[in-house]
Design a protein around this nucleic acid. Structure first.
Length: 984
DNA sequence: GTCCGACCGTA
DNA sequence: TTACGGTCGGACG
């Protein structure tokens, strides 16, 4: 920058709020996305830049930047915690616009500048100083009085909305003091919107008058006793410290660290097609036309670029509080009734609606052939950098990693692939071995970019908030890269998009999605790495095959995204994806990374005890049976029990074998037979040993010494998570023997485990969605729900109720949630089917609303093929129209269960998404470790137990709010102890 | 070596 | 009667 150059600095954050309130609301036609502030912003930028190229106008920028606030916490909060504390969260329809305006800035080919810990105003002050020192002039595009202190003969302001210049005379005219006294003036008056205290009773007029008389703030405070007006004098003396503090707060910091040099702000030529791509996506038709004319671009040839919208707490805007009021989307606020159909946006004509776009994308995707030999293998840094640059330019890139393991906490990076456009993908090998002839696997292959250099090159792009990273199952890649010091943001996940759209039968793996949506059979991992004993690690795969395989993964992921993402809007699944799926990815990844401490000694001792007990029982079994056989083989066991020994066979399995289930064996035992009892006991012991005490130690991670389960986000049809490797959602609890295994899950020294679980969450959800007065009242009163049910059904008082009566009512309550049948209930309670049927009839008489709800849900599912949770998550049951009565009945029961189980699953997801923020807000160091459907397990320092329990309980009990206001209270029981058994 | 059914642990 | 994942045995190729 040199003499005569002119820097324009746009106060982006200030503009967003001002435009939002000043301009009429505007939404994108096709899907209702709020874009009023974005529209105003684009029009203003266009006007500024158009004038800039018109040399008839006096002021021509040579340098240009748009500056944003990054977060609400800045150094000012250190000085004064109350700074801006009175700000409420931004309006919900403004939230997605923060990100869009940053994207707009990029589309205008302008630098987008922000820095964590600093306000936009400080960055503006810093750049203004640098520019003036370099001999340039500065125009700040803002009308914020906080910036007026910067005005001088080289620096002026411009109000883009009023088309008004603000120089030294305008400041004096408006405030009665010259710009250099604005700081003192604001220190005296304070500022209610920023919660800056100032001195009570002093407004701008008085302040200006005082400064005129005494010169500056210090002189005024020093000579305060001379002031004639009594009240004013007393206040200034009493609140002088407050004025000095205010001065610190309002004084802009003009020496903040900056990441982008002044000279890098030089104004680049407009990129017409890029800008038009964005404007078309926003559906700003008239501005699109004007830009097309001016840049001589044929807008018809340009596709709208996909834009990233962030609704939640990830969205960066100034003063975005973590409070719940900020989080409801319009879609959520309007939704909320269970099993109500979300209205898909109906295509009303040939215009470009989301539904039309989604359909055309789907058609195009199957038509395009995929050539896996066309991918590039990148082996030098310069080429990688060129791809990265293009990704940044593009704003979108599909990303995939190849690793040494499917366990993300053990996996090491072997290579990664990128895709910039369909068919344009590259593989970057990073740790392939030469493999030639050497039994030890050979040395490292030549000509690979060193891992640290590749990661250093990729990190800025992977963390660049203007570049959308797309992956299939991002949690894996996120956790892996997190371990390499990179936190990917922002991202989309094709697996989760598919799940939000199409949960039901059928998975969401890349291979099946590719086949379904692209009509393309992917290369299977087995085909490149082999399988079983002959399988090799991916680092031994030759680069040609590795490139085809890995490149295809990225290519297919990108293509899937292009097909699936538009469907979210078209089919009303945006809210589920944005509020329940995407934000959970990093929450779960961090939980997996933390792991939980497991005591190896306890497990090993238990294994020994179990082995001994099992061996003893084994001998008795052989004695009783009169021969040795494999007790673990249901086939052999059935032959002996029901064949040779002639026990009365209970039921047969579907393969025609005698069933040897615990139920059958228990019945025989109850009839006085000794052997079946022994078998049941033996089964329990060996199950505990093989599944838990023997297996768990093998999952203890070498480096962390902890067990890191893996959560599957898209494995169930209802919205529940599942856990595997190891499954920590089925650790025993029902029997005393089993519970011992829980004692091996421990808190690290100085810590406790907290277990917090929802009490009867599914029955509470049922009471809410089916609107059952007695159930709601019972939960309101906090009474024993099963006893209440029994009392209603059997006309017995709750007091001194026989336990068997309560047990039956409990079975019925669960039966209701599961889509009850007389057959199932009879089985569960070991009573005749007729009796079970009578129970159900009685239940429906007492609670007619339940029958209505079940009938309505079934009818809804038959009509639409899916059901919905209270948050709009859909579960599809296409087979509910099957002509097979068994199949149909099964799907009906599942359809009744899904909204209940799924709503409960959604509630705990919401709690989990908010939990880390709430704990941080309360300055608690507790770590969330595990989720078991209605339970969360935390590890917390001994001295923070009580506070943590109260925060956790608050978050969990209010998790449905504000999207859904449940008509039943949620109750959370929480306890802390040294191990999981005692905590639960 | 791979797949499936039976069984059983959890919510 | 709902939703999962792990282990085992045994049949298949």
């Amino acid at each position: 920058m040199k003499n005569g150059d002119h820097l324009f600095l746009v106060d982006g954050s200030g503009y967003i709020f001002r435009a939002y309130h000043a301009l009429p609301p505007l939404t994108r036609k096709s899907d209702g996305l709020p874009v009023g502030a974005v529209s105003g912003f684009c029009n203003m930028l266009w006007k500024l830049l158009k004038d800039a190229r018109n040399t008839d106008v006096g002021v021509v920028p040579t340098h240009f930047a748009v500056i944003f606030d990054y977060s609400s916490k800045t150094f000012r909060n250190e000085i004064y915690p109350e700074y801006k504390a009175n700000r409420s969260a931004p309006p919900e329809d403004l939230i997605p616009q923060f990100g869009l305006i940053r994207q707009a800035t990029k589309a205008f080919n302008l630098p987008c500048i922000e820095k964590e810990g600093y306000e936009a105003d400080d960055l503006i002050a810093t750049y203004a100083r640098l520019a003036v020192e370099a001999g340039g002039d500065v125009t700040i595009i803002s009308s914020d009085k906080d910036l007026m202190q910067l005005v001088n003969h080289k620096v002026s302001m411009y109000d883009g909305m009023k088309d008004k210049q603000i120089s030294v005379p305008e400041v004096i005219e408006k405030w009665g003091v010259p710009p250099e006294k604005m700081i003192d003036l604001q220190s005296l008056t304070g500022d209610s919107t920023d919660n800056i205290p100032g001195i009570p009773g002093i407004g701008p007029k008085t302040a200006a008058q005082l400064l005129e008389e005494y010169g500056d703030l210090d002189a005024l405070l020093a000579r305060a006793s001379e002031i004639k007006q009594q009240k004013r004098r007393e206040n200034i003396i009493a609140f002088s410290d407050q004025a000095r503090l205010s001065r610190e707060l309002v004084t802009l910091k003009n020496d903040t660290p900056i990441d982008v040099a002044l000279d890098a702000l030089v104004l680049e030529p407009q990129d017409g097609p890029r800008l038009i791509g964005f404007l078309k996506a926003m559906e700003f038709t008239s501005l699109t036309r004007r830009v097309a004319e001016t840049t001589e671009t044929d807008a018809a040839l340009i596709e709208p670029v996909p834009v990233e919208t962030q609704w939640g707490a990830d969205a960066h805007g100034p003063d975005l509080q973590t409070g719940v009021s900020a989080e409801a989307t319009p879609e959520e606020v309007m939704g909320g009734a269970a099993a109500m159909p979300a209205t898909p946006v109906a295509p009303e004509g040939p215009e470009n609606t989301p539904a039309v776009l989604a359909r055309s994308r789907a058609e195009a995707a199957t038509a395009e052939k995929i050539d896996t030999t066309a991918y590039v293998c990148i082996r030098d840094l310069a080429t990688l950098q060129a791809w990265i640059d293009e990704a940044v330019e593009n704003g979108i890139v599909a990303f995939d990693t190849e690793t040494s393991s499917l366990f993300p906490m053990e996996a090491e990076l072997i290579g990664l692939s990128l895709a910039l456009a369909p068919g344009r993908a590259a593989y970057v090998p990073l740790a392939h071995k030469s493999g030639a002839g050497d039994l030890l696997g050979g040395g490292m292959l030549e000509n690979q970019i060193p891992l640290d250099q590749a990661l250093a090159a990729l990190k800025p792009m992977l963390e660049d908030r203007s570049v959308l990273k797309i992956a299939q199952n991002m949690k894996f890649d996120w956790l892996l890269m997190h371990r390499y010091g990179i936190d990917i943001t922002p991202f989309d996940d094709t697996m989760l998009i598919s799940y939000a759209l199409d949960a039901g039968p059928g998975g969401h793996g890349m291979d099946s999605l590719s086949e379904r949506w692209l009509g393309h059979k992917t290369i299977h991992y087995k085909d490149v790495a082999g399988s079983g004993k002959s399988a090799v690690s991916f680092d031994m795969v030759d680069l040609e095959r590795a490139t085809a395989y890995a490149g295809e993964d990225a290519d297919v992921t990108l293509r899937l995204w292009r097909v699936l993402k538009p469907r979210l809007v078209a089919e009303g699944a945006v809210s589920v994806y944005e509020r329940l799926e995407r934000p959970l990815v990093t929450v779960l990844a961090r939980m997996e990374a933390r792991g939980i401490s497991v005591d190896r000694q306890i497990l090993s001792r238990l294994s020994g005890e179990l082995a001994q007990s099992a061996a003893a029982i084994e001998d008795e079994i052989y004695q009783l049976a009169g021969e040795r056989f494999n007790i673990g083989s249901p086939k052999q066991l059935g032959d002996i029990l029901f064949g040779r020994m002639g026990f009365p066979g209970g039921s047969k399995t579907k393969t025609g074998q005698w069933s040897t289930s615990a139920q059958v064996l228990e019945d025989l035992a109850a009839a006085g037979h000794e052997l079946p009892r022994k078998i049941v006991d033996w089964r329990q012991l060996t199950k505990l040993k093989s599944t838990y005490t023997d297996a768990l130690p093998g999952y203890i991670n070498q480096e962390t010494g902890r067990v890191h389960t893996c959560y599957a986000m898209a494995a169930t049809s209802t919205g529940r998570l599942s856990s595997s490797d190891p499954n920590l959602q089925n650790i025993p609890i029902r029997t005393a023997e089993g519970r011992k295994i829980r004692t091996a899950f421990i808190a690290s020294p100085g810590n406790k485990l907290i277990s917090a679980d929802y009490s009867q969450i599914e029955l509470r959800v049922l009471a809410h969605v089916a609107d059952i007065p007695q159930l709601k009242q019972a939960f309101e009163d906090g009474v024993d729900i099963h006893a209440m049910t029994a009392s209603e059904m059997f006309n017995v008082p709750v007091k001194d109720m026989p336990s068997e009566v309560r047990r039956r009512a409990k079975a019925i309550n669960f039966g209701i949630i599961y889509g009850i049948s007389a057959f199932g209930l009879a089985n569960q309670l070991s009573i005749p089917r007729e009796e079970a049927g009578q129970y159900i009839r009685t239940y429906f008489e007492r609670f007619p609303g339940i029958r209505d709800y079940m009938d309505a849900t079934k009818a809804f599912a038959r009509e639409h093929g899916y059901v919905e949770t209270i948050f709009g998550r859909r579960a599809h049951y296409p087979e509910i129209r099957s002509s097979n009565p068994q199949m149909r009945a099964f799907n009906e029961r599942a359809a009744i269960n899904a909204p209940i189980q799924g709503s409960a699953a959604d509630i705990i997801r919401r709690a989990m998404i908010r939990m880390d923020g709430a704990l941080a807000e309360a300055e608690l160091s507790a770590r969330m470790l595990l989720q078991v459907h209605d339970e969360l397990v935390f590890e917390v320092s001994d001295d923070e137990v009580d506070k943590t329990i109260s925060v956790v309980r608050h978050v969990m009990e209010n998790a449905a709010m504000p999207a859904v206001s449940l008509s039943v209270p949620l109750q959370v029981d929480a306890r802390a102890a040294q191990n999981w058994d005692e905590a639960h």
